[in-house]
Amino acid sequence: MTDTTLQSPAPAKVKVETPFQRFRAEFFESRIAATAFFVLVIIMALAILAPWITPQNPYDLAQVDVLDGRLPPGSEAFAGYTMWLGSDGAGRDLYSAILYGLRISISVGLASGVIALFVGMVVGLVAAYAGGRTEAVIMRVVDLQLSFPAALVALMLVAALGKGIDKIILALVVAQWAYYARTVRATALVERGKEYVEAAQCLGLSKTRVVFRHILPNCLAPLIVVGTVQTAHAVSLEATLSFLGVGLPQTEPSLGVLIANGFEYMLSGRYWISVFPGIALLLTVASINLVGDQLRDVLNPRMKK
């Protein structure tokens, strides 16, 4: 073969930038996103390390002293440590309570986010690939679901199911799967029309293989973006439910419960009981959202400059 040498350059030995390296460089181009990512990492680390870096386990009633109740930031607890962020009405050290609360809030957000993503993804793919009546029925259910505010759906479900982490997660999944389903279906429809899908069919591959091995990986970029934003949404939704008193129980306070606990003391000047958990919630949700925004910009080729 003489002609092969014409068009194929010798395999270059130069170090090529891998797609991940390029992605990383583009992601950290924005200072805001870099900061948000940094904050998010710190929050996650604090939440994960909570049992080892807090002076008190707020879930262990033996460690909580009612006499420590409503102490202002910087006071010394009965047990001898300093409560840098003060304490709440039940005598819980707020710093410890916030870190433990973050653990619950973030894990509820992540768990519901992942389950909703999985459910929505499968439903969306089936709708896009099956087409016809199946698709119409599925998408009308999605439309119906999306026509209710997520908070309302979650509120109704939790009211019906009762309290508890598992019930909250279930309620959040039901409230959010439709967003994923719609996103996946829209992307999968575009991908389905592309020639590589036709080519895969021409290879005699089975339908499930075409859908999950060929179409799905090409739909991941928008899914990741929606996943991040919806996780932030799930965290704040859980806080909302807990704040309203239908979410997590008082004995295992999430951020929403902590904020609600301090609400009655706001006017008496004991701002710290509500404000510090509020700031923690704000930082968490805002940093996830900012990271999500930057992901959208980086992963969407049309947004590229």
Partner: peptide, 20 residues
Amino acid sequence: RGNRISMIFQDPMMTLNPVL
């Protein structure tokens, strides 16, 4: 399909799955 009769498509940019 793909075994006894196979197919070659028009646009080589499109017929290979970009993520595999």
